[in-house]
Computed example of a mutant assay.
Amino acid sequence: MPYPKLPAPAPGEVLLICTCYEEDKARWGEVLGALRGRQDGDAVVLDDGGVRLRLAEDPGWDYLQGGNLPALVPEGSAAPPIAAVVDIPVVYGGAAVLLVDLREIPGRGVRVPGDDLGRVLAALLGGSLRFDELVHGMDRFGVYQGDGWAPAIPTPTTVVRASFPRLPATEMTLLVRTDFTDDRAWRALVDALGEPDEDGGFSAGEGLSDRVELSAVVVDDREFEHLQPGQVPALVPPGEHTTMVALADAATMADPAHPVLVVDLYDTPGQVTRIPLAEAGSMAANLEISNMDFADFV
């Protein structure tokens, strides 16, 4: 069943989208009370900067991933620059509000604390702050100017190509080749995954990991050459709960341990970490059962 399209915000407004529902009722948690602003009908006008947050509710958005928002912009309409999301980590985990880029690199996200939301949104809409700067300023929890220390692997913001096809729909890990300069290194990586199963996926054997086998759908297609992490979340079909997406880039090919670049789809869409292929199965399993968060691997 397709997700409902996003409503069109008025000029200068930002949609505040709820993606957490119980019995078709929106759950906003403590967010609305924590925002520094005043209620104005179905909008909140923030004190710092005067930005209007238009509250957007639809039970059809339950469990919607932030990276899927670009696909829900109505066809023929201009995408607003940004949207704000109140998701499960916000409602039940006290996480910062998720801002999703809808224009520069659609689908990537950064979290911003509620008490700083007005300033950040006003600066983004006014042009004195770019989404790239939010990404560069994230801590390991994906929070802009957060105190969780800087990630070991900064999330890239440079884009080589602007257009890519959709990624395959699957519940398994996607392993996507993005570098095509070394076929021998790529074959070595694929050989390490083992033999494909009847569904076309690969399961790593005991020689690859002594903890958890990695089940992955391998994408070897030049259509994804130079794909960057921030572009990945918008390419995952809406409604598909892919465990994670791992990119095999030039650094992956150059190292015998095949350290893949793993992209977050849930907590902070587009954020990255790099792990050896031998550890990817354990990471996928822990993310799947919510035993660990993406930040635990950053």
Results as ranks from 00 to 15, higher is better:
2 P>F: 03
3 Y>E: 06
14 V>Q: 07
15 L>N: 14
18 C>W: 06
20 C>Y: 11
20 C>E: 15
25 K>Q: 13
27 R>N: 11
30 E>F: 03
31 V>D: 02
32 L>P: 07
33 G>R: 07
35 L>Q: 10
36 R>A: 13
40 D>G: 02
44 V>I: 15
50 G>I: 10
55 L>T: 03
58 D>E: 11
59 P>E: 09
60 G>T: 12
61 W>I: 09
61 W>V: 12
61 W>T: 11
62 D>L: 02
62 D>K: 05
63 Y>Q: 13
63 Y>S: 14
65 Q>D: 06
68 N>F: 03
77 S>I: 01
81 P>C: 01
83 A>V: 14
89 P>T: 07
93 G>S: 07
94 G>Y: 09
97 V>G: 03
102 L>H: 04
106 P>R: 08
113 P>Q: 09
118 G>K: 05
129 L>E: 08
132 D>F: 05
133 E>D: 14
137 G>N: 04
141 F>P: 00
142 G>P: 09
143 V>N: 04
146 G>Q: 05
149 W>G: 05
150 A>R: 15
151 P>N: 03
151 P>M: 05
157 T>Q: 06
158 T>H: 08
160 V>G: 00
161 R>P: 01
161 R>A: 13
162 A>M: 07
162 A>W: 01
162 A>D: 12
164 F>K: 05
172 M>H: 14
173 T>S: 08
181 T>A: 12
181 T>G: 12
184 R>M: 09
190 V>Y: 02
191 D>M: 01
196 P>Q: 06
197 D>M: 09
199 D>S: 14
203 S>D: 06
206 E>M: 05
207 G>E: 14
207 G>V: 01
209 S>M: 01
211 R>W: 07
212 V>R: 12
214 L>H: 02
214 L>V: 11
218 V>N: 00
220 D>H: 12
221 D>Y: 08
221 D>A: 11
235 L>A: 02
239 G>S: 06
241 H>A: 14
242 T>I: 06
243 T>I: 14
243 T>M: 03
245 V>D: 05
246 A>W: 10
247 L>P: 04
250 A>K: 03
255 D>M: 00
257 A>S: 15
266 Y>R: 11
266 Y>D: 13
266 Y>K: 01
268 T>L: 00
269 P>V: 05
277 L>C: 02
279 E>I: 00
282 S>G: 09
284 A>E: 04
291 N>D: 11
293 D>K: 14
293 D>Q: 14
295 A>L: 01
298 V>Y: 00
